[in-house]
Design a binder for these strands. Sequence first.
DNA 1: CGCTGTCTTGAGGACGGTCAATGTTCGTGG
DNA 2: CCACGAACATTGACCGTCCTCAAGACAGCG
Lengths: 239, 239
Amino acid sequence: MLEDSISEVERIDGRRVVARERQEVTRAVLVLEGHVCRYIDDRRGLRQIVAVHLPGDFVDLHGYPLRTLDHNVATLTPALLAHIPHAALDRIVAAHPQLGVKLWFQTMADAAMHRRWTFRLGRMKSLARVAHFLAETYARMYAINRADGTSYPLPLTQSDIGEVCGLTSVHINRVLRELRAREICTVRAGMVEITNLPELVKLGQFDPTIFISTPILTRIFACAGKSPRRQHAQYRYSP
Amino acid sequence: MLEDSISEVERIDGRRVVARERQEVTRAVLVLEGHVCRYIDDRRGLRQIVAVHLPGDFVDLHGYPLRTLDHNVATLTPALLAHIPHAALDRIVAAHPQLGVKLWFQTMADAAMHRRWTFRLGRMKSLARVAHFLAETYARMYAINRADGTSYPLPLTQSDIGEVCGLTSVHINRVLRELRAREICTVRAGMVEITNLPELVKLGQFDPTIFISTPILTRIFACAGKSPRRQHAQYRYSP
DNA sequence: CGCTGTCTTGAGGACGGTCAATGTTCGTGG
DNA sequence: CCACGAACATTGACCGTCCTCAAGACAGCG
């Protein structure tokens, strides 16, 4: 039904703004090819990326209930985007309320990822942040069959990764060097080659639960054990 | 209809865990009184708070489409909670799909706040983070009529605020001292007294848009002007 | 009273930002 | 085929923010 609702398919260059903050949205965007991100500008015009979207992801489905955007949307690479008018979603939801809940589910998976990102920025050091991001992206790429064994394409610059992880491009460079030196993974020429997945997962405290839709992922990430317990210290927080 | 769906009202102490990560949820929790938070533990058992909920907020409505939680829920203060079984939501959504979209909207407002938090942690310095949090909470308290002029109750310890802002309680203490010294606001004895709202909003780069449901808020936060422009520097990012 | 939890302050140090120079890659045009 | 420029990657030196550790003050409460 969604496929039939596509009103337009658009090919677009890399590094192009697709939609602006506060803008009214009348259709949802679905990524068919390429990497798309959502970001929030600060006053100086610098930005924090709040989500990265891969093929198969809705970028702004939340714009359907919200009607307006609270952030910008831009491509990171050349991309192929499908547009689905909100009116079509109205019809689907009205006719099949349970499908409405399924769409809702999609946006909630997104929100769960937002929470992980909040956690990542609030609690982790640079090395762990990057490790988490790389592990998360691996899981997502794997799930959509874009990972070749332990490697996958990541067409982001070091600045982009910095904007994701709340670090400067300079520091990202040093972190990637460290990850390479520790033989955990190699990021080069737009490709990530993971040499030690258990270590990457552990370092990034990556919890694959929210991504596990396929049993394959469960096996791949079997290494991710954890059992946190709240501790009562003088400083409840120490990153 | 929601009111009629309440299956139970529960009074609960402060600092109690209400629900645990990975737990299946079968009912939604609505805050009637008190402060409730959602948080993610790290391996060491320390935590990052990813959301704070005030009276009138759904805490885990996202558990309705997701069916399981990706974080913990705990009270910060004694609270009064209403429980609404998912089965009741099923009936509402089936009978009135447009009400389903309204519920969806609620969870998306939440997601929008998540994105602001990501931005806050990724891009802002300590003073700005705390200022943003205080301004945001003021807007929310004002909207539910819990603010008395320029002051409102904030029954969080400095450690709690640290867990929200990704800082230690020690540093929160210094930040609050600084805010007081600059005569922007005073946080003491569980109360926030804002002495210079425009400055607080500016410092925290607070954007009230996503909270503006009432015209009153628009007026109160008229001081929040902004017009960011993407800048192309060697370092796209510098916090 | 004497807990216990919270707040406050100081001293020292680590992490990551800032600045700046240089290297690398790649596309474009002479 | 090479020269040039633009964007990205890499490295070093320095420094600021915020964490860490530690000690003490304060308040509420049994």
